[in-house]
C-alpha cells in the first residue's frame, strides 16, 4: 500500500538546510495498523506529510497504492488525497462555521457527489462514530473527544485506502484517548490501513506495528504484542 525507498527530505533554513529525513525505507502493506514513534524533531511529522501528499520529498521513491508519486502538481495531489487518503489531525481541524454533518460531508463535495447523497452518507458515518444526535451542532458545541470522532468520520467518509492520523490523541484526556483508539482499531479491523503518529507509548502499544524514528532514520521496526498475536 505504501512503499518508501531511500527517502530524503531537507528544509531550507536561511542559507543552510536542515536534513530531516535521511534515507528512510518503509513498506506498509494493506490492512496494517502502524504507529510511528519518535521525539519531536525526529522527522515523524515530515514523513506523514510526505505520505499524505501534503509535502514533496527530495530524493528516493514513494509508491502509494502501487503508483509512483513523482512530479505531483497540486491538482493531481488533491485528487489522490481525496481518493486514497483520510486525515485525522491533533487539533481536529474542523471548519468552525459548518455543522458536524457538513464537516463530514465536505470531502464528498470535492468528490463531486450531490448534496442529498453526501448528507446521507455523512449521517451514516456520524452514526458509526456515535454522534448521530450531534449532527447539526457546530464544532464549538462539541467536546474534544466528540470533535476528534467527527474528524475520524470525515476521514472515513470517502472510503480511503489509508487513514493518516497525526497525534490523534494529543489533545485528549486518557478516557477519550481510549475511545478514539478503539475507534481506529475498529476501522483497522474492517481492513483499512491506519497510520498513526504519536509520541505516547500507550497509544503506540495499541497498534500492531511500531516504527521508531530518531534523527531522520528508522532505529527500530517491530510488531507489538497485539501485532504478534494476529
Amino acid at each position: 500500500m505504501i512503499r518508501i525507498e531511500k527517502m530524503h527530505k531537507s528544509y531550507p533554513i536561511g542559507k543552510d538546510s536542515l536534513h530531516v529525513l535521511k534515507g528512510i525505507d518503509l513498506h506498509i502493506k494493506e490492512g496494517e495498523f502502524v504507529s510511528i514513534m519518535g521525539s519531536s524533531g525526529s522527522g515523524k511529522s515530515t514523513l506523514l506529510n510526505i505520505v499524505g501528499l501534503l509535502d514533496i520529498h527530495d530524493e528516493g521513491n514513494y509508491y502509494l497504492n502501487g503508483e509512483l508519486i513523482k512530479d505531483m502538481n497540486e491538482k493531481k495531489a488533491a485528487i489522490l488525497r481525496n481518493k486514497f487518503l483520510g486525515f485525522v489531525f491533533q487539533s481536529f481541524n474542523l471548519i468552525s462555521y459548518k455543522t458536524a454533518l457538513e464537516n463530514v460531508a465536505l470531502p464528498l463535495y470535492y468528490k463531486g457527489i450531490n448534496r442529498k447523497e453526501r448528507l446521507e452518507i455523512a449521517m451514516d458515518y456520524l452514526d458509526k462514530v456515535g454522534l448521530k444526535q450531534w449532527a447539526n451542532h457546530l464544532p464549538n458545541e462539541l467536546s474534544g473527544g466528540q470533535k476528534q470522532r467527527v474528524a475520524i468520520a470525515r476521514a472515513l467518509v470517502t472510503k480511503p485506502k489509508v487513514v493518516l492520523a497525526d497525534e490523534p490523541t494529543g489533545a485528549l484526556d486518557s478516557t477519550t484517548t481510549d475511545s478514539v483508539m478503539d475507534l481506529l482499531k475498529d476501522i483497522n479491523d474492517e481492513g483499512m490501513t491506519v497510520f498513526v503518529i504519536t509520541h505516547e507509548e500507550e497509544v503506540a502499544e495499541q497498534t500492531k506495528r511500531i516504527v521508531r524514528l530518531k534523527d531522520g532514520v528508522i532505529i527500530s521496526d517491530e510488531l507489538t504484542n497485539i501485532g504478534k498475536a494476529v
Binding site: 481518493k83 465536505l106 470531502p107
Partner: peptide, 8 residues
C-alpha cells in the same frame, strides 16, 4: 483543511 480533503 479543504485542500487536505481534496480541494484543487
Amino acid at each position: 483543511i479543504r485542500k487536505a480533503l481534496g480541494a484543487t
